[in-house]
Amino acid sequence: MLDHADNIIDLNAILHPGSVYDHPRDVIADPTLSIGEKRAILTSWASDAASVASSPTLRELPGSDKAVTIDEILEALASLDHHPKGPPGGKPVRTRSVERTGLAA
């Protein structure tokens, strides 16, 4: 997508991703795309505008003849997020029982 020697960006991949990518994993695997660009492409693919009329769980990008499931797209989007191993702030600790808290309200 980006020719580093000439600093030229292939806008076709951004504006018409169906002509470049066949599957969400192809978008994720493209090393020349930033995370924001990958997210934008996958989000446009997940949009209802890309849904197949006869099967709303499928999406097809303009310029592509292949359909993918919404689950494959959402899985690819989720892979872009870096989740912490534990909840923020550590493990929650209760100082009161749930029953006593409910009675106090």
Results as ranks from 00 to 15, higher is better:
L74A: 08
P88H: 07
D71Y: 10
R94W: 04
D48T: 09
W45H: 14
A53H: 11
R25V: 02
S19R: 15
E99A: 09
E37I: 00
S54A: 15
E37M: 01
A46I: 00
S55K: 12
P84L: 04
R94L: 11
E99C: 00
L80M: 03
Y21C: 04
I70P: 00
R39A: 15
I14L: 14
I8V: 15
N12I: 12
V27Y: 05
P24Q: 08
G36H: 06
L61C: 11
T57V: 13
S97W: 06
I9N: 08
I35D: 15
L11W: 14
R100W: 00
H82P: 00
T69G: 07
G36Q: 05
I73P: 05
A40H: 04
V20N: 10
I73K: 13
P24W: 04
L77A: 10
P92D: 00
V20Y: 10
P17M: 02
T95F: 01
I35A: 13
D22G: 14
H83T: 13
D22Q: 14
D71C: 09
V98W: 10
I8Q: 15
S51T: 10
M1V: 14
D48H: 06
V52Y: 07
L11C: 02
W45K: 13
N12D: 14
L33F: 10
L11T: 05
S47C: 08
L80Y: 01
T101S: 10
S47Y: 07
L42E: 04
T32F: 03
D6H: 01
A67W: 02
K85Q: 10
A46C: 01
P17T: 04
A53L: 12
G36A: 07
D71G: 12
V68F: 00
T101H: 08
R96M: 03
S79M: 09
S19M: 12
D30M: 03
A105H: 03
T69M: 06
A50K: 10
G36I: 02
S51D: 09
M1G: 12
S34L: 09
S55V: 08
